[in-house]
Design a protein around this nucleic acid. Structure first.
Ligand code: FES
Ligand code: FES
Lengths: 138, 138
DNA sequence: ACGATTCCTGACTAATTTAGTCAAGTATGA
DNA sequence: TCATACTTGACTAAATTAGTCAGGAATCGT
């Protein structure tokens, strides 16, 4: 049960952006350097973040990325979902009514994992970029 | 952020054991069949579970595994830890005082991930095998 | 106009981790 | 003594992760 670099880097970069940008766009070069992240990797991530509407880009000289919404209204859970690092605790599909072992109802542990997932989702849902920047964490 | 089969199978098997055993040992064959799990894989897992003192084994005919403690006193978090599926949300080592980027203090997101980890740990800590068997889940 | 900067995008790959299998052995009870 | 079942380590195939790389397109300052 570990957090991969994809989700970690995306959140680190977004926090950096929220923290150091003052309206002006920040280049990936700058962010990558400050956070010690591979820049080519960040490019992939910001592509998705832009497509999902979390950041805006300006090209060319003095260009870079800007938050497309207020930092207080971007939840960590949204970032993770946007770049494709979902929380998968249960093994069965939500839609299909067959449990993870293929037969009839849910397995004995389904409720346990579902509860864990709900817990995590709730936590990450309740925290915004602004919260992280201001260290307003429980 | 997904749960692997190692942890999942271990918990499924332990729940099965707690649920269907009535003092008598259950063979891995039986458990594996009922839960649709690969038996050779379970062998590895139960090796560790025995070494850590969660189950007892009886060999030979009519042998199998039995819980070594009461189901109510085995927490899910303990099972996951025993078979080596720890919760790793932060990237930095707990001991060393250097953050995940190598320099000075902790990174901007450390508190966030630590909080997530604490949350998960707390949830899995508060649930015992008995709770799962009796579907006493929030 | 030019050239530096920066985003944009897809394709590709190396390394790691996961999810197992396999084989040989030991202990036990019927 | 034979079938059952645990014991243990070594090995491997597949999937995932964590990136790299290359080429392109837009923009701005000079
Ligand atoms: S995890 Fe949903 S049925 Fe097993
Ligand atoms: S995760 Fe602990 S310092 Fe970054």
């Amino acid at each position: 049960m570990k957090l991969g670099t994809k989700g970690r880097y995306a959140v680190m970069a977004m926090v950096d952006l929220a923290f150091y940008s003052e309206g002006k766009p920040l280049s990936l070069t700058e962010i990558a350097e400050r956070q010690a992240l591979p820049i080519s990797y960040l490019e992939q991530l910001f592509l998705k973040l832009r497509q999902k509407g979390f950041v805006m880009s300006t090209r060319g000289h003095q260009g870079g990325y800007t938050l497309a919404k207020e930092a207080a209204s971007i939840r960590i859970s949204e970032i993770l979902e946007a770049i494709g690092e979902p929380i998968e605790t249960t093994r069965c599909k939500e839609e299909s009514e067959l449990g993870c072992l293929g037969t009839k109802g849910q397995c004995l542990t389904h409720a346990l994992w579902a509860g864990l997932g709900r817990q995590m989702q709730q936590y990450l849902n309740g925290i915004s970029l602004a919260d992280v920047c201001q260290r307003r964490l429980t």
